[in-house]
């Protein structure tokens, strides 16, 4: 087993998983919504970025200058994701967030939105996968006997920066405080002037933007296709679950743990056992810590 290699691939996977899970975790924590349409947001944002990228490719003057195309495409992905998030919020959160049985109903509503949206994407864009133009140029970085390509390196660096920013923002800003407050007690949150509906839009636009960013960054791993959101959704959910629903810190720790697990499994047992060890790990952790890793980090949470 090559330790250096395992570390590099663990970091790669942890970055991917962290980026995927953070949006799900924030949505759950602040809105109490398990957003099954997260995968749809992921796919839609990819298509948004692809449309813009396609247009840019047609313009000869800039089609090869990565530093122009890259940021515009990323921005397009983020904006589409945010718009998609707002739509999902308007459909699944706003009408029922103060009605009985919200958690189950919200889950099903987002599921229905995802079902409809995926079919619409399939009919509009066709079944074939799309790819984005290179976003981070065309360099390669050999580390030991691993070569990190521009896309991968760019994605890793951006996701680390992104996660750090998100954590910092959640910790220090008023908005972050509002989101955290809402996750603990929406009733009391409205008593300190936090508009649940407005914050809902806010959060969903933000997590949509995160999904969009993830979609663009990971477009080389999960190509853009109508069903491309399913794997990120399942991965994101399992990471968020292991981290303890609603804990951003927990999600990041979980992403690192699952990334390491997958890298180790691939190195020691073989790639086909990655899913099995992953779910076994989650099950074992949950049996001992019914509230996930956050249950260890934060003792004050309600049991």
């Amino acid at each position: 087993m090559d330790l250096g290699f395992v570390i590099v691939s663990a970091v790669t996977l942890a970055c991917i998983y962290g980026t995927l899970a953070i949006g799900i975790s924030i949505t759950w924590s602040s809105l109490g919504l398990i957003n099954m349409a997260y995968g749809l947001t992921f796919a839609t944002a990819g298509y948004g970025a692809w449309l813009v990228g396609d247009q840019l490719q047609a313009i000869d003057a800039i089609s090869d200058t990565t530093w122009i195309v890259g940021p515009i495409v990323i921005l397009a992905g983020i904006l589409t994701g945010a718009a998609c998030g707002v739509v999902i919020c308007a459909v699944t959160f706003i009408p029922i967030h103060d009605k009985p049985n919200f958690t189950v109903r919200g889950l099903i509503a987002s599921l229905a939105v995802s079902l409809i949206g995926t079919q619409v994407l399939l009919q509009v864009f066709g079944p074939r996968a799309k790819s984005l133009p290179p976003l981070f140029g065309d360099w390669e970085l050999p580390i030991g006997n691993v070569v990190i390509t521009a896309d991968k390196g760019g994605a890793m660096i951006s996701s680390i920066v992104l996660l750090a920013l998100a954590l910092r923002w959640m910790k220090s800003s008023r908005r972050g405080l509002e989101i955290r407050a809402m996750m603990m007690n929406p009733h009391a949150a409205s008593l300190v002037g936090i508009g649940v509906r407005r914050t809902g839009f806010y959060v969903m636009a933000l997590t949509g933007a995160l999904a969009g960013l993830a979609s663009v960054l990971l477009s080389q791993t999960y190509y853009i296709s109508p069903f491309s959101g399913l794997t990120p959704l399942i991965k994101g959910l399992s990471v968020a679950l292991l981290g303890g629903l609603g804990s951003v810190n927990g999600a990041i720790v979980a992403a690192v743990i699952l990334g390491t697990n997958e890298a180790l499994t691939s190195a020691l047992l073989g790639g086909q056992y990655a899913l099995i060890t992953q779910f076994l790990l989650i099950i074992i952790v949950l049996l001992f810590r019914p509230r996930g890793i956050a249950g260890i980090l934060d003792k004050a949470r309600e049991a």
């Binding site: 103060d98 929406p186 009733h187 009391a188 949150a189 409205s190 936090i194 649940v196 934060d298």
Partner: peptide, 28 residues
């Protein structure tokens, strides 16, 4: 109205509610 739908706006008119029991955020 649904409960709490306009509460934040009312609160912003200059209302401070210190509710009965523990209407507080456990983790903060």
């Amino acid at each position: 109205q649904g409960p709490g739908r306009y509460t934040h706006l009312i609160v912003r008119q200059g209302l401070a509610v210190m509710p009965q029991g523990d209407e507080i955020f456990h983790g903060l």
